[in-house]
Design a protein around this nucleic acid. Structure first.
Length: 700
DNA sequence: CGGTTGCACTTTTTT
DNA sequence: AGTGCAACCG
């Protein structure tokens, strides 16, 4: 077994430099996951490091899973927990630490995790108790302000102390109330997972020291996208041996809006003196043409390190730029091109990804794919776990697990409708808060609440009995899948979903999918954790289908063929950067770079003269990123509203019966035309279906 | 209390 | 354009 086999010199150095701080500056497609995996394997196999002495942080759960699989192959060991290092995302690792050590901070071991929706509901509740109208202050704005504060490790009182504008003062108040309610509910939000871990490590040196001596080797991927809290976690976990290896690429930093600071990677050398810096600059992924184009885009940025990626692969096909009349035509062009390539067996559907700036751009693409029967899957957007029916069931499960969780209770109290309206709910919650009982206990005893009507009492007690029965099942360790089935049956949920709408059957199908998902988990807390921390790419299937997703979601992935759509000013770069500063524009450009470098062999970029947004037609000019790539703005078509037949002269029109010549197949006659796909009966006797965009047919 | 209708708002990107 | 929420009526 030679762990160093197949690595280039820089990668070998990265694997073999096992002591002291290492900074791995890894360009796009330079084999960093491979290097990280081999480094871990080397530590275990040759350096006598135990797997549980290694902590490896990845950006997604999927990346962790992939690394685990590759590691077990490399080491020839089964993929079992006991033989695996601590691997996962920052959030996942923090959950595990807090389940074990949270009691030091008065965090219940059965805390639930609140997502963005839950957080906004709680903010609304907080605003209601403070009598702040949500007309003046949007819960969404409050949510992001709180999130920013948390990521900067600012408490409500810190925020209040720094507040000067009325808005900030109000937000600080809401923040304080939000925190109280959240603690009462036994819940942590995404940001809490990080900052409570920071607090744990700061306030409890005994816990910190134990972890420090356990984790003799720490590896962190995508270090350019760490935020202040994550940075603090890293700094306090590293022990005096400084065996820390971080990997990243400042050119690919695309999460500054959520508090990530790529300067963390730039200042690593100062943080850890004696750092060995290793640059991985050979790209194994893309063709020369794609790399050059991407390079031309990113080098327009001012704030960045200098590097030059190179490839031993050939130049390949040039980056293709295509104009369309509107978003529907753009989508149709892509779908038909994919269909043709697959028909010619040049590609499989799974080889192709279509990337866009924002989720709302997926709709026209979906329509075109459906029309042309191109199988596709959407990553992100409305996530599976965000669907109403799924969230309902999860809310029930969360309430069973954490009977203080008011947000979940509020969600399900009248689902299916059981005659408990807003008034009764409010009265019940006031009574429950004063009773000292948790929600389920209080429900069972609701007939003692004098403020409630007899009808409401009856309904609430019935709900309480039902939940108590299920809670008993939980204490008997009933597997989550069975629990869901029992729950769905006892509340008559399927009948409730069958409301006569066309989506009803889809919803019931999703319910089935939820149960089969749950089957892979033995215990309820594991299932709930997975559901809460599942990232959008984690849920992608491996079916043979085209992948549609945002560029953010595509980070870390690669595809033989990539389409980037909506290359227009106002879309990409997003219109928001016009009001923001140059650093936001630089992030857009990095995002463009990330998108382009996902492509291995073919990169297509397209823009539309106009597109429908908010039900309004908007006219955008081609993105400046296209000009950055060296495409002359003057050479690009200029569109006007009245001028809608330009498209005709971009596609040579072929008719049945036309004689054509192909460089590959000789001369022949066109027998069928279907969009961009043309069937030609060649004089040699063969009939071929060709895409006129790249078959280069010459009309005779 | 529950269902319906009409209005407002959306769209950056996500763990 | 589509969706979610608020105000109304039964």
């Amino acid at each position: 077994m030679d762990i160093l086999e197949g690595l280039n010199d820089a990668q070998k150095t990265a694997v073999q430099t096992t002591t002291g701080p290492v900074l791995l500056l890894a360009g796009a497609g330079s084999g960093k996951t491979k290097t990280l995996t081999h480094r871990i394997a080397h530590l275990i196999a040759s350096q006598h490091i135990w797997p549980n002495e290694i902590l490896a942080v990845t950006f997604t759960n999927k990346a962790a899973r992939e690394m685990r699989t590759r590691l077990s192959t490399l080491l020839g060991q089964p993929d079992t927990r006991s033989f695996m290092p601590w691997m996962g995302t920052f959030h996942g690792i923090c959950v595990k630490l807090l389940r074990i050590h949270g009691h030091h901070l008065d965090i219940a071991s059965n805390f639930v995790i609140y997502d963005e929706d839950d957080r906004q509901s709680l903010i609304k509740q907080a605003m209601k108790t403070l009598a702040i109208a949500d007309k003046q202050i949007k819960p969404r704005a409050v949510s992001s302000a709180i999130s920013n504060a948390k990521n900067e490790l600012q408490s409500p009182s810190d925020m209040a102390a720094n507040a000067s504008y009325p808005f900030e003062k109000s937000v600080a108040k809401i923040y304080a109330t939000y925190e109280t309610l959240r603690r009462q509910a036994g819940a942590l939000d995404f940001d809490d997972l990080l900052i409570e871990t920071v607090r744990l490590l700061r306030e409890h040196p005994e816990v910190r020291d134990q972890l420090r001596s356990q984790f003799r080797h720490i590896l962190i991927d995508e270090y350019q996208d760490t935020n202040a809290a994550q940075y603090a976690i890293v700094k306090s976990l590293v022990n005096d041996e400084h065996n820390i290896c971080v990997v990243g690429d400042d050119w690919q930093s695309i999460y500054s809006w959520r508090g990530a600071d790529f300067r963390n990677i730039l200042r690593f050398e100062q943080d850890f003196p004696g750092t060995v810096v290793i640059k991985l600059e050979q790209n194994y992924r893309s063709t020369g043409a794609i790399l050059e184009a991407a390079h031309n885009v990113i080098t327009k940025n001012v704030e960045r390190t200098d590097k030059q990626l190179w490839t031993a692969a050939g130049t390949g096909a040039p980056v293709q730029i295509q104009a369309a009349r509107d978003e529907a035509e753009e989508a149709f062009n892509i779908a038909s091109r994919i269909a043709t390539q697959v028909q010619m067996a040049a590609r499989r559907y799974r080889d192709v990804a279509v990337l866009y700036r924002m989720n709302s751009q997926s709709a026209p693409l979906e329509r075109a794919m459906m029309q042309l029967r191109v199988p596709y899957q959407i990553v992100g957007g409305v996530r599976f776990y965000d669907r109403r029916e799924v969230k309902d069931i999860i809310a029930y499960l969360r309430l069973l697990y954490q009977p203080a969780d008011r947000i979940s209770f509020t969600r399900i109290v009248n689902v299916p409708t059981r005659g408990i309206g807003a008034t009764s709910l409010e009265r019940f919650l006031i009574w429950q808060a004063n009773s000292g009982m948790d929600i389920i206990e209080a429900l069972v005893n609701a007939d003692q609440a004098s403020s409630l009507t007899p009808r409401a009492k009856k309904a609430l007690v019935a709900l309480g009995e039902l939940l108590r029965t299920l809670q008993l099942a939980v204490t008997r360790d009933t597997p989550p899948a069975e629990l869901i089935e029992q729950l769905v049956a006892s509340i008559g949920y399927e009948a409730y979903l069958r409301d006569g709408t066309p989506q009803a059957e889809d919803r019931i199908e999703n319910l089935g999918a939820l149960v089969s998902d749950a089957r892979t988990f033995a215990a309820l807390p594991d299932f709930l954790e997975e559901v809460a921390l599942m990232s959008s790419v984690d849920s992608a299937t491996d079916h043979d289908s085209v992948t549609l997703m945002t560029i953010h979601a595509a980070k870390g992935l690669e595809f033989p063929v990539v389409f980037m759509v909506g290359m227009e000013e106002g879309i990409f770069p997003h219109s928001r950067v016009y009001q923001a500063g140059p650093s936001e524009l630089e992030e857009e450009r990095r995002l463009c770079y990330v998108g382009m470098t996902r492509a291995r062999q073919e990169l297509h970029m397209s823009f539309a003269a106009c597109r429908l947004q908010f039900g309004q037609r908007e006219y955008n000019s081609p993105s400046r990123f296209l000009a950055d790539m060296g495409y002359e703005a003057a050479a690009m078509p200029v569109f006007e509203q009245s001028h809608d037949d330009f498209y005709a002269d971009m596609i040579p029109d072929f008719d049945i019966g036309d004689r054509v010549r192909s460089a590959q197949f000789g001369t022949g006659e066109i027998v069928d035309v279907d969009g961009l796909a043309v069937s030609v009966s060649f004089d040699s006797g063969t009939i071929k279906k060709l895409n006129i965009e790249f078959a280069h047919l010459e009309k005779l």
